[in-house]
Design a binder for these strands. Sequence first.
DNA 1: CATTACAATCGTAATATTGCGATATATAAT
DNA 2: ATTATATATCGCAATATTACGATTGTAATG
Lengths: 109, 109
Amino acid sequence: MGLTKTEIFTEEQNQLSMLLKALAHPARIAILQQIIAAKACICGDLVDELGLAQATISQHLKELKNAEIIQGTIEGVKVCYCINPKTWKLLEKQFGRFLGSYQSVDSCC
Amino acid sequence: MGLTKTEIFTEEQNQLSMLLKALAHPARIAILQQIIAAKACICGDLVDELGLAQATISQHLKELKNAEIIQGTIEGVKVCYCINPKTWKLLEKQFGRFLGSYQSVDSCC
DNA sequence: CATTACAATCGTAATATTGCGATATATAAT
DNA sequence: ATTATATATCGCAATATTACGATTGTAATG
């Protein structure tokens, strides 16, 4: 046990939960906010900004990259990270539809 | 190690990531979709609908309840679950703001 | 080529999550 | 009271996550 039964869920349910999982950590939220705030793409400044070790930041970046929420391009010694617009749009669409499917009726318990 | 350093993040970052974490599982997405689809609140029908054991569903419901995304009221032997409109609105607001803070500029890497 | 600087990866410890059988609890029906 | 039905909880095993020190890999610079 201990592993999610992805096979019993729909493609959409799995995809959405995967994206949300990638976002579901305060450090990763903070990282994304930093990347967005710095109009240009920042790099290892994240290590200074947040109070986490370099290895930890790198690991969080990897997860965001795996989920294709961000993309990184090598710029000499540094690496430049930025939002992947395609996934961001997908997230807006998918999660928007999910959230919108509920209309507060307050006819319930 | 192995525990999130919540103290170094903002209230908002922690709150948003906590809500997203509660949603970040295909079973919990499916549960919420069921609850929303059944206009009235359904109960243990979830166990039949999804292919998971009763104990597992109950545990997922507990997590959603802890995050205050759903609320349950006892109706005789059964329990009636439904969306907590307050938290749903909060989620729409917080996550909407987060998503909206990025404007696809494609001026980047 | 040696050095420096940045970032990724490895290894490890602590903790959390997922799933389920078994059991407990609580209400309803007989 | 006994039985049936619906949920919650406990305990466990398998796996995943989080964090970080140490190391490795790359590329620019002296």
